[in-house]
């Protein structure tokens, strides 16, 4: 697992940027406005070293959307939003004049959908590029502190490494911006690496 090269990471970054592009397209169709999503970095981090500080997450409440998926590799993907950013994004997507408190009523389901769009877009990009099929559970949504979420993720994982993606999301005209953290913890990341090798072998 520690043998991920620059090229591996570059390939993953490209996969996720394509996923981000697809997610942005879906979201823009919902909000009727340009949505920009970029993935500035992909990292593989030792799970021992993962905490709210290393992920530059603050002490606030986070919304976490997670999906379990199976296929050539089984994994749990978690998307973290700060709660107030999440509400702002959903508020903008709904285009209503509702206050943040009122939005809370719809938060759960809307956040599930928002997370689901981004996670599915990344997974489908991966499936297209590496030519495999993934199955996934429906998304779950929970609100907790970053450390609580990370702790649970680490407990469920037997792997020493977690893939971390920082995602920037901007709804153009409304000047809404959010930073999302995408965590991928897998019992079989090695399988992902072998798919990467196979993919890179085809083009080098």
């Amino acid at each position: 697992m520690s043998s991920l090269s620059e090229l591996h990471l570059d390939a993953l970054a490209e996969v996720f940027s394509i996923g981000a592009g697809r997610a942005a397209l879906s979201l823009s169709e919902i909000v009727g406005d340009e949505v920009r999503i970029s993935v500035p970095s992909v990292q593989i981090i030792n799970s021992e070293d993962i905490n709210s500080a290393t992920l530059s997450l603050n002490n606030g409440r986070f919304g976490a959307v997670n999906q379990h998926f199976r296929g050539p590799f089984n994994a749990e993907a978690v998307l973290l939003f700060t709660e107030d950013q999440a509400l702002k994004i959903v508020g903008d997507m709904m285009g209503s004049q509702m206050s943040i408190d009122e939005l809370a009523e719809f938060e759960h389901e809307a956040m599930c959908e928002l997370g689901n769009i981004i996670l599915n877009a990344c997974l489908s990009a991966m499936a297209d590029i590496f030519s495999f099929t993934l199955e996934s559970s429906l998304p779950d949504y929970a609100v907790a502190s970053a450390d609580e979420i990370l702790h649970r993720l680490k407990e469920n994982s037997t792997q020493p490494y977690i893939m971390v993606l920082h995602i920037d999301l901007t709804i153009e005209k409304r000047h809404t911006a959010g930073n999302l953290v995408f965590l991928l913890s897998s019992a079989s990341l090695d399988n992902l690496v072998s798919h990467l090798d196979q993919f890179l072998g085809n083009i080098t």
Binding site: I30, A110, N116, L134, E135, L138
Partner: peptide, 25 residues
């Protein structure tokens, strides 16, 4: 709604589950 049809098509193509929330749809 076009969003529903797009979601259905996505599920059929990629075999990934989709949520359409009341809030957004």
């Amino acid at each position: 709604s076009p969003a529903f049809l797009a979601a259905l098509k996505n599920t059929l193509t990629y075999r990934l589950p989709v949520v359409l929330s009341t809030a957004l749809h």
